[in-house]
Write a protein that binds this DNA or RNA. Structure first.
Length: 276
DNA sequence: TGACACCTGCGT
DNA sequence: ACGCAGGTGTCA
């Protein structure tokens, strides 16, 4: 479900409720033995009694910084949802992990498809984790010139490269298609052959589609909700991802194409985004 | 780079 | 019944 704008929206909606709270008890449900690392007894023991000092985000991961210096990383994958409720609220069938907080509330993690993962990292482990992920596309240090060097040092098809989290953080299938459409670049172009002007357009369009989605609190296609249970409002602003094959391009009315590129469904306009 | 795996649910 | 889904990990 979530790409950078959705994950950041979840982080923002959690932050005022979690910062400064102490976790009194950590619970892991019986459904998915792999939801957390390290193993449940160690995971719980090192979190119970810790204060959450700050919330962060790195790519598609939400970060809970603990008083001990450890960092909890949460990846929602496709259907993970974080919510805050009263401890007495009824629990649904897809609840896998939850924190009791010192104010009587619970932080709950529901995940229908059980793809999401939580990890508890030491500061040293967090450093390695951080270094394994590419630059943040909305950080001021992510300049067009830096992006040009990144693209030209690889020889990869553009769409799978944009989805590669070790190359650039936080972009998923929706915003990759949106950014390529806005930049008028075909998803199967090669990274090393983009002109400086094309790099510049792609850089600007990545930042624009992500910032715009953030402003509308993310895209809800089906499942996505922020930590208050609210859907995002960005769906109607999508220009290409939300269209069906053969729908007219919103720019030129040419029928839109759906292709599978790097095992992911990909939508583009063959006229606006020529291959050569 | 592709094929498949991990899961469940929904639309056709 | 089948294809598809906002993601990623692991094989060959």
């Amino acid at each position: 479900m979530p790409e950078l704008p959705e994950v950041e929206t979840v982080r923002r909606t959690l932050e005022p409720h979690l910062t400064g709270r102490t976790v009194t008890c950590t619970h892991i449900g019986p459904y998915d033995r792999c939801v957390a690392t390290p193993q449940p007894d160690v995971f719980c023991e090192r979190i119970d009694g810790q204060e959450i000092t700050a919330l962060g985000r790195r790519g598609k991961f939400i970060l809970l910084r603990l008083d001990s210096g450890d960092v909890v990383t949460i990846h929602l994958r496709m259907t993970g949802e974080l919510s805050l409720t009263d401890q007495t609220a009824p629990q649904g069938p897809h609840l896998h992990l939850w924190f009791d907080l010192d104010n009587g509330q619970q932080l709950r993690y529901n995940d229908v498809r059980k793809f999401g993962r939580w990890s508890l990292l030491t500061p040293e482990q967090y450093e390695l984790f951080d270094q394994s992920i590419g630059p943040e596309p909305l950080d001021p240090s992510f300049t067009s010139e830096r992006f040009r060097k990144m693209l030209h040092s690889r020889r990869r098809i553009l769409k799978p490269l944009l989805l590669d989290q070790s190359f650039i953080a936080g972009i998923g299938n929706i915003y990759a298609d949106e950014a390529l459409f806005q930049a008028r670049i075909h998803p199967q172009r090669h990274s090393h052959e983009l002109t400086t002007d094309e790099v510049s357009r792609l850089h600007a369009s990545i930042q624009d589609v992500l910032q715009s989605a953030l402003r509308y609190r993310g895209t809800t296609l089906r499942d996505y909700r922020d930590a208050n249970g609210e859907p995002g409002e960005n769906l109607s602003r999508l220009r290409i991802y939300s269209r069906s094959p053969d729908d007219p391009c919103p720019e030129c009315a040419t029928p839109i194409v759906r292709a599978v590129i790097g095992q992911r469904g990909t939508r583009f306009c063959p006229a606006c985004q020529p291959i050569d």
